[in-house]
């Protein structure tokens, strides 16, 4: 039932099931965790890129809205909330 965050439909809350930390640099991983993006948390993808490309992805986590790269979203597995 898991999907990848970069393909997840916009506006629908999902839970992060697994993040492939090995697919990104140490610093990138740390910044994601600093944003609070880690296994078990809920996020809602909201906006995706412009006509130039599907990158980046804006999502809410808690009361925060953050921008990440589609490349990073592609290694984040998500599942439907409850």
């Amino acid at each position: 039932m898991t999907a990848l965050l970069d393909k997840a439909p916009l506006g629908v809350a999902v839970r992060i099931a697994r993040i492939n930390w090995d697919a990104m640099s140490h610093d990138e991983g740390r910044r994601l965790r600093e944003f609070g993006l880690m296994e078990g948390c809920e996020v809602t993808p909201l906006h995706r890129g412009s006509i130039f490309s599907r990158d980046p992805l804006a999502l809410t986590i808690g009361r925060m809205k953050v921008i990440i790269r589609a490349r990073q979203a592609a290694v984040i597995e998500v599942e439907p909330t409850a």
């Binding site: 906006h47 412009s50 990158d55």
Partner: peptide, 19 residues
């Protein structure tokens, strides 16, 4: 400003920069 950065990121990414 950050919204503008978000919109421009795709274009900036194509030239090897970031939003």
């Amino acid at each position: 400003m950050t919204r503008a950065a978000f919109l421009m990121d795709g274009l900036m990414g194509k030239v090897g920069l970031s939003g």
